[in-house]
Amino acid sequence: MHLFLEQLLNGVAIGSIYALVTLGLALVYGILRILHVAHAAVYTVGAYLGLLFFKMSGSLLVGCAGAIAGCAVLGVAIERLIYFPLLKYPPYVPLIASIAILLALEEVCRLVAGPYILTFPAQLRFPALHVLGVDVPSSVTGILCITAAILAFLWFLTTRTETGLAMRAVSQDLAIADAMGINSHAVISFTFAVGSAIAAVAGVLVGIYYNQVYSTMGSVPAYKTLAIIVVGGLGSVPGAVAASLLLGIAETLLIGYAHIPLPRDALAFLAMIAVLMWRSEGLFGSR
């Protein structure tokens, strides 16, 4: 029973990280209907920037702030310089561009930081807990708290502020949002900044959790998060979060606990295929 609860908790932690990476993808799909594959590269860059600023300052907070700022700028640059000019073409054009950005950014990381796995020797200063006889390591507490805080912030932003109203309006009808006096291009850039900032936090958390930062750390998340937003319902933020948590739990329990002989990363795709066959709008989507 203890092992089960421990694994469940690990699953939630891993699912939380998936959620943080996937949020940006869901936000971008919701507003531009683009599959922003390069988002995983933003997450990788976030991990590197976090490590860089952490090493320079010795403070994880500064590391995180640097990663957030750098990734927000990177995300907006990708939107302004690459996606926006391509919006007039069919959706596969920005998708191809996005894959190219992913590969290019990974190469840039490899060239700048070297083809090594770097360690991220930082500690999340969260308390280790002991609940119901289960040990919760401080890294798990940290991931859960940070994810909860980010989700709460995002919920507040989208449902309780005028900017959030504008984001939802632009995602539903961009031209009419403009006619209502909303500067939709600014709203789109803001959405990229928010999604990329969250990816930066995810990159730093993963770097610390596994004590690894490397240039291809975004490769698996790049396609796994695609599977997650399909399962959750394209463009649905609650769907993306729910699907991320479910996947994290399923991966940990089915493969780590029940020892089902499958490669761990296959599960996301089995779920995606199942969803496409039986409920193509996804768990939370609408058609």
Binding site: E162, L165, A166, R168, A169, Q172, D173, I176, A177, A179, M180, G181, I182, S286
Partner: peptide
């Protein structure tokens, strides 16, 4: 201000939120 062809209200915003979009930046 425009009343578009076929209304084009924001489908998943509430009626009240639709009205607020019309007052965006003018509250």
């Amino acid at each position: 201000r425009l009343v578009p062809e076929r209304a084009r209200v924001f489908p998943r915003l509430s009626v009240f939120e639709n009205l607020l979009t019309g007052a965006y930046g003018l509250r």
